[in-house]
Design a protein around this nucleic acid. Structure first.
Lengths: 347, 347
DNA sequence: CTGAAAGCGCTAACAA
DNA sequence: TTGTTAGCGCTTTCAG
């Protein structure tokens, strides 16, 4: 590893000058030719700053901690982490991801991260839950990811749940479905409430009455299949909006057993958690894509803006697939979901 | 953060004495009462070493890099990473996971990690592939995870693919299946070859002829379902060994369409990549569990033993579910897979 | 058995 | 405009 000392020697200047130049603090402090020379030598020698050494002095490690309960075990989280990592890399930070199983390991992991001088934390939960914040994180720069602070204090980045439900239901309406069922989640999470509201709003807008019999709230367990099965037979829906793709699987299974074909006899829209379905396996499923990558990216950008006390505006946005408008016409296609940013309440 | 300096002041000794004691290098160098006193004060004050500061002097950061191509995007990897993280934590290391999409980002990520003074690297691929090793990693302590070095130089930890195929097929034979199909992968990867060999060996051992018509090698794409469907109708197998659970899904779909019930009419064993199936969704699927957690754990333990030049024996093994023996009798159940450790060729 | 002192790579006052 | 110096927290000779 080439150090500033070596560059200083080669350039015939002192280390502090090199430090000034390489940190772009040389404006009006170092003669421009010297600065240029230093930069040249640094480039030539392939100098890479040693962030650990500088952290000792500055107290900034440029390390970010990403904490999630079980997120890292699910593919769902992959995109978020990828996006977070990309943002971190572009902004000159290193992301350390830890997934904690239970309450106890969480505190331990946080402590371990803090020993490494983490500059700030991302805290992620699955499926937009209301959540408390670990005490150890109170006094650190912090952004919640796909979660909402129950006290409304900590800033967060989360999906626009209402529009997920709204867009999905609109799509089914536009596809000509007459009886649209909602296969929801049994847990009291924000995602569930928001999506259900969106479903109702879309129905109302189309002048249709809400019918509670068309709604099944199920968990990820054995009886779920029976519940969906019962709904299938009792109500004979021709459209299904599913809370996630695990729920969509139940619909697929029921359809297969009844000789119904998805895409011809019934239409299904599921929110994509990447939990169950690969695209190739379920070609007829219309998925609402959660912008996981963007969620991760945005979260890190926001965290860094807090840490560096800089505006969020000038972060470079990654090239991303163009948002797909809500189309009339045949299924399937992708529906793009938007994100919400909740500001911190404390100024 | 409480520093050694403070402890030294409180104890009325110098920092170096504190350092000696807290690193357990005090034997015969520091009077035992003083040592005890220092330890007490450290505990009382809740002293945590600052690994970054010590790394400056020692050149060891106790940071490990975990690199994987796309592993982090798939749930498959979750267990590996969890295990790796656990081992790292127990051995006093911090694990930084980066997943690279393509070749270019890989080099960049490695460089970024190396700037943070990574002590060593884990390099993971999915499904046990033969792989080359990035040039930048040549001179670092390195262990391959679920992959095999094509040159046979770098040590690796990987599943025992042969036994996966063997155990799965045995299970189907013992369950009474007469015509056992193998739904394999189309890619030329070690996992595929090994599992197929295991399948053939189990058949041979049972005195059954290998029948190529019962084997379908498919990719994760649309035609796969047709291929499985064709096999279903042409050969009418009553047992299926599937390369992974994505392949098992095709079998489920085909069965559902034909009114066949898995667990009654046909038996299915799939290798568990957690890609498609949650246990609750496919109660009748017998899965060969890949010991992802253990693979991650073992890999890190091995890497650390290389870095610290210490024997692998005294690493504490995590409590793990007892291995399930191969049972005669009814399906379903779990089959446990063992791991192989390949030693480095260079002594 | 213990402490003083140097130094890891870098930054930030302060002098010059 | 540049260099000197001190110090971040820790480890490690080397004297005492």
């Amino acid at each position: 590893m080439v150090t500033m000392k070596e560059i200083a020697k080669q350039a015939g200047v002192s280390v502090s000058t090199v430090s000034l130049v390489l940190n772009n603090r040389d404006e009006g402090r170092v003669k421009s030719e010297i600065a240029a020379n230093v930069r040249d030598i640094a480039a030539e020698l392939g100098y890479k700053s040693n962030p650990l050494a500088s952290s000792l002095r500055t107290g900034r490690t440029h390390i970010l901690g990403f904490i999630s309960e079980d997120v890292a075990t699910t593919p769902y989280a992959g995109g978020i982490i990828l996006g977070a990592q990309r943002a971190a890399q572009q902004l000159g930070y290193m992301l350390i991801v830890v997934s904690t199983d239970g309450r106890d390991s969480e505190a331990k992991e946080i402590a371990a991260l803090q020993r490494y001088g983490t500059d700030g934390f991302l805290y992620a939960k699955m499926s937009n839950r209301l959540t408390g914040v670990p005490a150890a994180l109170k006094d650190t720069p912090l952004v919640l990811v796909d979660a909402t602070d129950e006290k409304g204090i900590v800033p967060s980045v989360e999906p626009d749940e209402f529009h997920i439900g709204y867009d999905a239901t609109r799509r089914l309406i536009n596809a000509g479905c007459q009886r649209i069922a909602y296969i929801g989640a049994a847990d009291p999470i924000i995602a569930e409430q928001g999506r259900l509201e969106g479903y109702r709003a879309a129905l109302a807008e189309a002048g249709r009455a809400f019918d509670a019999r068309l709604v099944a709230n199920v968990s990820n367990n054995e009886p779920a299949l029976e519940a969906v099965s019962a709904l299938f037979d009792a109500e004979r829906p021709d459209g299904f909006f599913c809370f996630n793709d695990a729920r969509a699987w139940y619909v697929y299974e029921c359809a297969a057993r009844r000789g119904l074909e998805v895409g011809r006899d019934i239409s299904v829209v599921g929110v994509d958690n990447h939990l169950v379905f690969a695209d190739t396996l379920t070609p007829q499923l219309t998925t609402v894509e959660l912008p996981h990558f963007e969620m991760g990216y945005w979260s890190v950008a926001k965290l860094v803006s807090i840490i560096e006390n800089s505006p969020l505006d000038d972060v470079e946005w990654p090239e991303t697939t163009a948002p797909l408008p809500l189309l009339n016409g045949p299924m399937p296609a992708k529906i793009r979901c938007t994100l919400i940013e909740k500001e911190s309440v404390r100024s």
